[in-house]
Design a protein around this nucleic acid. Structure first.
Length: 108
RNA sequence: UAAGCAAAUCGAAUAAUCGCUUGUUAUCUUAUCGCAAGAUGAGGUAAUGGGAGGAAAGUCCGAACACUUAUUUGAUACCCUCUUAAGAGGUAUUAAGAAUGGUAGCGGGUAAUUCCCGUCCACCGUAAGGUGCGAGAUGCGAACAGAAACGCUCAAUGCCGAAAGGCUAGAGAAUCCGGGGCAACCCGGAUUGUUUCCGCGGCAACGUGGAAGUGAAACGGCUAAAUUCUUACUUGGGUGCAAAGCCAAAUUUGGUAGGCUGCUAGAUCCUCCUGGCAACAGGUAGGACAGAUAGAUGAUUAUUUAGAAACAGAAUUCGGCUUACGAGUUUGCUUAGAGC
RNA sequence: GGGCGUGUAGCUCAGCUGGUUAGAGCAUCAAGCUUAUACCUUGAGGGUCCUAGGUUCAAAUCCUAGCACGCCCA
């Protein structure tokens, strides 16, 4: 799990990120990014339409957060809303992290 | 040895590195209050504890808890209002009743239940066992077969047969045995049901043995998982923690944003002891127990068991039921076969 | 998290106080009408009543469990 200062927690911030942020995507993830100096905040969204079971949703969120935590310096500062797409169900678990890093590569 | 029945148990482990959440202690920074000592709040660091399940699931039942609503009578309490000392009205607590709902062999358990335990009976199974079709009265047999399915009226009324009856048809029109008779049929007995009486067992439902009577005006089936009434026991209804209470910016009141409480030690679980056949109850006994709030309980690597474990992720709490699922292991029992 | 509802023909819906053959509209197909198409007329086909158990003589209907879809509550 990320530290509290790196979570995008307030519903207002998420709403503004959705409204003003730029969208980056590949077939498996779509990322809303709103630049803001001084802090890096993330939130990961996996809906029930992607995975029906809570265990699978938690697993995906944990994998993505772990990747963010390890590669935190390489992200630009700002707010991120990362949502998974239904196509990701076809991917085996080992290829999820590379797919996510590919989606992030477009931002840098 | 094989097949089966019932019950119990586990729900990966170890190490390294990097994280998250929470309790306690220490310490640092900062804000507010205070003359001060210090207090309270927020944040950081360190140490040391805790950190998903047997189903956390489905939401099928039941309760706790909170708010809300209706109501007859009695008792108690205190306060308020009205009038004339006494009374009337109101509020709160509590007890009983009614309406309404529920339960239904019998007896128990529980806070409570469409739950659990014991037992009777019925049915299923060779058996170990499993299932619940299970109160009384009244009523029903509606569709399609069929001569006929409670009775009456109307209509209709096949074949064999003197008649009784049989054939047929249907979920359903009691079954079987012996003797006599050419046959129709007659006689006797049994099964099974039922009524009465008596004995024995049982708290009881009921079981069992005997005697007498009776069976188409019968028996069996259904009768709130279609419908009516009665009896016994029991019971207010509704909404659900997104209940509910409190604090409170911009902006004075109210309230909104936001925050706090509710929020986890409880009808709790395990072991032992006592009572009980058991469910369960009791215990100055010992031990255990997550609490997040965009939501922690994780990631990587190596080794091992058994194959990079199956079903699967707490959200107010608890009790049941149901469904999903991995690896086996243990205990008791039944049937069949083989050996001694 | 909590509380509700729906599932019947290719589509939209009736039927749900157990019983005759599960119906209606649109769509499809065939025939007629027309030089031809449409409209119109007539007729036909098409159903595991979401799935699995149970109650009953008999279940789309009643009961239990499961599956899928939808709605409401800050």
């Amino acid at each position: 799990m990320l530290k509290r200062e790196n979570r995008l927690a307030k519903s207002k911030d998420i709403a503004t990120a959705f409204a003003r942020g730029r969208t980056f995507y590949n077939p498996f993830f779509s990322i809303r990014f709103l630049p803001r100096t001084g802090e890096k905040r993330f939130t990961v969204v996996v809906s029930t339409k992607v995975y029906k079971r809570a265990v699978a949703r938690n697993r995906l969120k944990r994998l993505v957060r772990e990747y963010i935590r390890k590669n935190l310096p390489s992200f630009k500062s700002g707010g991120y809303v990362i949502s998974a797409k239904p196509k990701i169900t076809s991917l085996p678990e080992k290829e999820i992290v590379p797919a996510f890093s590919g989606a992030c590569g477009r931002i840098r």
